[in-house]
Design a protein around this nucleic acid. Structure first.
Length: 154
DNA sequence: GCCAACGTTGGC
DNA sequence: GCCAACGTTGGC
């Protein structure tokens, strides 16, 4: 069992978009970075939990919790020439990109802002807070996970 | 909109 | 395999 953080731009796909899906479940498409792909393909397992993070928006931060309900399978948006995530180099016979399915567990009672996370010394080693960290899929340690959840009701 | 920090591409 | 040029991410 591993914890993760998954970034999404709310103007593209927000936590409320996920909440409106059937069974609050959807596929997580559009990962086009090898490190992030390797995480979801090789390490993410069914039952893992992840923070849903809003990026590139007025208040970046952690907004909810999702559960991995289907392990990695080929990202079909890469095969669709009309799709914005189309990648001609990904072949259905040998897919380059993968996706998982996530289910919304719950929204947090409040969004925990990036700015607030930065204030906590206990969190200074988080991958998210490292300088220049642009990965859209990041591992979170158990200690960090528990610590952040305690901030929710502070 | 700016721009720093990355990642990727492709010529050589 | 190097590395300059280019594209992207994402906070601010």
């Amino acid at each position: 069992m591993q914890y993760w953080l998954m970034k999404s731009e709310p103007n593209v796909y927000s936590i409320d978009d996920l909440a409106q899906q059937n069974s609050k479940t959807d596929h997580w498409d559009g990962i086009r970075n090898y490190q992030a792909r390797n995480f979801i393909r090789d390490e993410m397992r069914k039952g893992d939990l992840a923070f849903f993070y809003h990026s590139n928006c007025p208040q970046p931060g952690i907004t909810g919790i999702v559960k991995i309900v289907r392990e990695a399978y080929p990202d079909f948006t890469a095969f669709d020439a009309k799709h914005k995530y189309y990648d001609p180099k990904s072949d259905p016979q040998q897919p380059r990109w993968f996706m998982v399915d996530v289910k919304l567990v719950r929204k947090l009672k409040r969004t925990i802002p990036l700015l607030e996370l930065k204030e906590h010394k206990k969190l200074q080693d988080m991958r998210l807070l490292q300088r220049g960290s642009r990965l859209s899929i990041l591992p979170v340690t158990t200690q960090q996970w528990d610590y952040i959840l305690k901030l929710e009701t502070k």
